[in-house]
Design a protein around this nucleic acid. Structure first.
Length: 617
DNA sequence: GTAGGGTTAG
């Protein structure tokens, strides 16, 4: 606001104390009372009074009311237009910011430097690069392209809309870079997935604030570098800087994905010790973290204590139940959520449908799938079709599952066919598997998982020649299987094991421990199952290799390091193989321990020689 | 006036 108009407004307030009154209004009804009183007492309600009303109601996110006032005045000034451009820039209708801008120019109002940051933000929010480029053109035409606020918002706009080169170009020609310029550029690189460039800038920048740290930590987390996110958070801690809620959300989310319960608990403790508010977002992150780290009881406790809940916080818990195979509980919470008056979202259905498929509740799943569209007008997306294929396939209805895929109204993608192929593996159906496997390998020839899956099906049905053919095909095409690893957390340190790992400092002790375990479980009737060993030809070599699977090394280490009968939690990046699954069941019986294994898809609770997945995974 | 946070099938 120019100093002249603010002076006018100040004078107006002195003549009209009701305007001062407005500032203390916090609700729509209070605003309305003052408004009505002004009309009744014939108090002047000119454009300055209106500005006051509009800017206050926009600050309180009462956009509709601001619009009502807007329509009652004659010649809106720049302040009013700017308020609307700002108000709509983060709303669901960011295009209205642009409409107000166009209208202001049509009415002969000249924009100022305060107009553009929000107009640019609106373009980013709209997701329209064309509009963004138009806005940039206007900025140049009006000579604001050297205003650092405007430049910073352009960096954000371009990087949000996928044009990282344009963002970099703006950044390079800013003459007085401030902390927001650096931070926006770092956020931009992170958005484009380039965490290396982001980190380079982060290390280079002269002075960082907490937002900068937050951007870099969440950048790592969003790009699946969860260990890097934790590492950077530890660096922040070592500098003695206090984190805030926003930082902790990324930290908690990273612990969730790493399955690092101890680290997560420690972070939770830090949140409570520093008296941070466990708001909706942080609370949901905590629920998700406990569920993903295998502590579903704690997830429920945090959930129960949340001051407010939305569809996402319920969904985090429901998805947790689904992951653990507690289908009935997931459904119970789903109906409780609906009863509490919340409308389920797309992702809520993904969670309940996956609960049904893990729990083998075919009828209920089909019912929910129908109800989605009928009762909630949610058009099923690929994820939902995927759950249905899994639901039918897992239950052994392979023919129906294949028909479902062929008849679905959306073009099936690779994961849909993958779900069908997974079902063929469980039910040893080579015929459908070959058809589906070939479709998949054509669809994604670079994806190793499908070669492995098909090959494992051949191995399960003793078609060794076909196994060898798959191996050749992968070799010819240069497809590499991503290395499997298993994580085990102890005393706040995450130990990572890979197949045939020789790098762990205690590897010799671990191998001796595994030999001992093997002796004991063999006595109890375990015989090596080598079906899933893709690259091995003769039985002997196969057996020695699967006995170095990362999961087994991690379990051996965990047994070494923990007290007798303590339960053991480990996290894998791939699916658990058949032999490891059998061996772990035996270990749970022989050592009388509960083993909680999180694999790529779900949790396995091993206890007394059985697994909660009922051997379907 | 500009920068940061939760959920997503197999």
């Amino acid at each position: 606001m120019s100093s002249v108009s603010s002076l006018v407004l100040r004078n107006l307030e002195l003549k009209n104390p009701k305007l001062l009154f407005l500032e203390s209004c916090t609700t729509l009804s209070q605003l309305k009372i003052v408004h009505a009183h002004m009309i009744r007492t014939h108090t002047i309600f000119d454009v300055f009074a209106a500005s006051r009303f509009i800017s206050i109601s926009i600050d309180k996110n009462l956009l509709d009311y601001a619009l009502q006032v807007f329509y009652q005045i004659q010649d809106p000034n720049l302040f009013i237009y700017n308020s609307f451009i700002r108000g709509f820039s983060a709303s669901k209708n960011p295009d209205k910011s642009f409409h107000f801008y166009v209208q202001s120019k049509r009415n002969g109002v000249v924009p100022n430097n305060l107009t553009y940051p929000f107009l640019v933000k609106a373009c980013a929010q709209m997701g329209s690069l064309d509009t963004g480029i138009q806005a940039h053109g206007q900025i140049i035409r009006h000579g604001f392209d050297n205003d650092v606020y405007v430049q910073n918002s352009l960096i954000n706009m371009y990087s949000t809309l996928g044009d990282i080169e344009a963002a970099t170009y703006i950044f390079r020609r800013i003459s007085c870079l401030d902390v927001v310029s650096w931070t926006s550029m770092i956020a931009g690189y992170n958005r484009s997935g380039d965490v290396v460039s982001a980190r380079k800038l982060f290390d280079k920048m002269p002075e960082k604030n907490l937002v900068t740290w937050s951007v870099m930590i969440s950048g790592y987390a969003k790009n699946n570098f969860f260990d890097k996110a934790i590492e950077l958070y530890n660096l922040l801690q070592s500098k003695g800087v206090q984190a805030n809620e926003t930082v902790m959300v990324s930290v908690i989310a990273s612990c969730a994905h790493l399955g690092a319960l101890e680290l997560g608990e420690r972070a939770h403790d830090y949140i409570l010790r520093n008296k941070m508010t466990v708001n909706l977002i942080l609370g949901t992150a905590l629920v998700d973290m406990y569920a993903r780290c295998g502590s579903i009881e704690e997830a429920i406790r945090v959930f129960d204590e949340l001051p407010e809940r939305d569809a996402l916080s319920w969904t985090a818990l429901i998805a947790g139940f689904a992951m653990h195979g507690y289908a009935e509980t997931a459904l119970e919470y789903f109906s409780r959520m609906v009863k509490s008056g919340l409308t389920p979202r797309e992702i809520t259905f993904t969670a309940v449908l996956s609960a049904c498929s893990h729990g083998g509740l075919v009828k209920k799943g089909l019912e929910l799938f129908k109800s989605m569209k009928r009762d909630y007008r949610i058009e099923p997306r690929l994820e939902h079709y995927g759950c249905m294929v899994d639901l039918l396939g897992r239950a052994g209805k392979l023919v129906e599952a294949e028909e479902f895929v062929i008849e679905m109204p959306v073009k099936p993608n690779a994961p849909i066919w993958g779900a069908l192929l997974g079902a063929c593996r469980i039910h040893k159906n080579v015929e459908i598997a070959e058809r589906v496997g070939k479709t998949l390998i054509e669809l994604q020839p670079e994806h190793s998982g499908y070669y492995v899956l098909l090959s494992n099906i051949y191995a399960r049905t003793n078609k060794w020649e076909d196994v060898e053919n798959m191996r050749q095909l992968m070799k010819e095409r240069g497809v590499v299987k991503p290395p499997g690893y298993t994580l085990f957390e102890m005393d706040g340190k995450v130990h990572k094991f890979t197949i045939g790992d020789k790098t762990h400092p205690e590897i010799q002790k671990i191998e001796r421990m595994w030999e001992e375990i093997l002796r004991k479980i063999r006595l109890a009737g375990y015989t090596g199952n080598t079906n899933d060993a893709l690259f091995d030809i003769d039985e002997e070599e196969k057996e020695s290799n699967i006995h170095r699977h990362s999961e087994k090394l991690a379990i051996a280490y965990a047994i070494m390091r923990t007290k007798a009968h303590d339960s053991i939690r480990i996290v894998k990046n791939l699916r658990v193989c058949e032999d490891c699954h059998t061996a772990t069941k035996m270990i749970s019986k022989v050592y009388e321990r509960e083993l909680i294994v999180r694999d790529r898809n779900r949790f396995h609770h091993f206890k007394g020689g059985a697994c909660s997945c009922m051997d379907y995974w």
